[in-house]
């Protein structure tokens, strides 16, 4: 059963732009921006859902509507049976939110002090608090810096501290808005492990917005793509790949350039650099093996590899609006 339900969510902003010049304050033009323009989706309990889209597509706005920060212009949103902006206090107890690059911790005090304060705000019983702290320390390595003021932490440590902070009260829902921005590869990996573990251990439902494709691929079974306020795709990654990037490339390097063009059945040369050829094929029509076999029979193949599409390519295709917008939102 769906634990998050969104129906026809619309959020319109009125943007007032100042006129130019010293009297600009008197001349203002008002524009309506449809940040979210009729989005509907469901999320099941325990899912990790990826929410991706270009900058300005409406991702953060959606998250803010889901977490009670913004009141939608129209539409219905329920999170765990509650309406986020109306039942704000009750909803607050069941969610945890991390905004990338914006910390939720007090700046000048040690992390552990903020944790204790949060324990009180969220009414976490002491034994539960202690147990969670231990668990979080195992995964995030909190003991390393929990007595340090947040001001003195590195970015990676701070993000870890933020993640720990939102898990202290065992939320049912975790909203992560670009949490890994600015982190190095090792830190990102650590975070991914954390999210996967938390999801496995507590069945917390995770709503993740990000630009990082490897995160999407490793964590999310389902993704939703949003563009200019509308839901463009909702489904599994593999289906998305099949729909938006049905081709793969065999990249082959020949020992010497042949006299004529390289011809292969089922594939098309899309690029050539010296003796290296990119041969594109549709995965539903033929296989890499079939192509490589032909190539090796006809030409002196020195080296080859197969380039499969990843999420990045899907997204580029969608952002670039090269593929038609056809998938109806769920």
């Amino acid at each position: 059963m769906a634990i998050v339900e969104v129906r026809d969510l619309v959020k319109i902003f009125r943007v007032r732009k100042r006129g130019t010049g010293p009297l600009g304050i008197l001349r203002r033009k008002t524009r309506e921006v449809h940040a979210v323009d009729g989005i509907s989706f469901d999320v099941e309990e325990g899912e990790i859902v990826g929410y991706i889209g270009p900058n300005g597509a409406g991702k953060s706005t959606t998250v803010k509507c889901l977490t009670g920060i913004l009141v939608p212009t129209s539409g219905v949103v329920t999170v765990g049976g509650l309406v986020p902006w109306r039942d704000r206090i009750k909803n607050g107890r069941q969610i945890g939110v991390v905004f990338g690059q914006k910390t939720s911790l007090w700046w000048d005090v040690p992390v552990i002090d903020t944790y204790r304060l949060l324990r009180d705000i969220y009414d976490v019983p002491e034994p539960v608090f202690r147990r969670n702290l231990g668990l979080l320390d195992d995964i995030l390595g909190l003991k390393e810096f929990q007595d340090t003021p947040v001001r003195q932490l590195s970015l990676g440590q701070r993000v870890r501290a933020d993640l720990g902070a939102v898990m202290l009260h065992n939320p049912r829902f975790l909203f992560l808005d670009e949490p890994t921005i600015g982190l190095d590869v090792a830190a990102k990996e650590r975070l991914r492990v954390f999210i996967a573990n938390m999801n496995a251990a507590t069945r917390v439902t995770v709503f993740l917005t990000t630009h990082d494709m490897s995160e999407i691929e490793r964590l999310c079974r389902r993704i939703m793509i949003i563009d200019r306020g509308r839901l463009v795709y909702s489904g599994s990654i593999s289906d998305a790949i099949q729909k938006y990037a049905p081709c793969s490339d065999v990249v082959v390097e020949l020992a010497e350039t042949p006299s004529g063009p390289v011809v292969v059945e089922g594939g098309e040369v899309v690029r050539q650099e010296g003796a290296r050829y990119w041969i594109r094929f549709r995965r539903d029509q033929t296989t890499a093996g079939h192509l490589v076999g032909q190539l090796m029979a006809k030409y002196p193949v020195k080296d080859f590899r197969v380039d499969d599409p990843n999420v990045e390519q899907i997204v580029k295709t969608v952002y670039g609006a090269l593929a038609p917008v056809e998938e109806a939102p769920k």
């Binding site: 009670g68 704000r88 909803n91 607050g92 969610i95 939110v97 905004f99 914006k102 939720s104």
Partner: peptide, 9 residues
């Protein structure tokens, strides 16, 4: 401020 709104307080 967003964090204020997200907490049960």
């Amino acid at each position: 401020l967003d964090q204020f709104l997200v907490r049960p307080s």
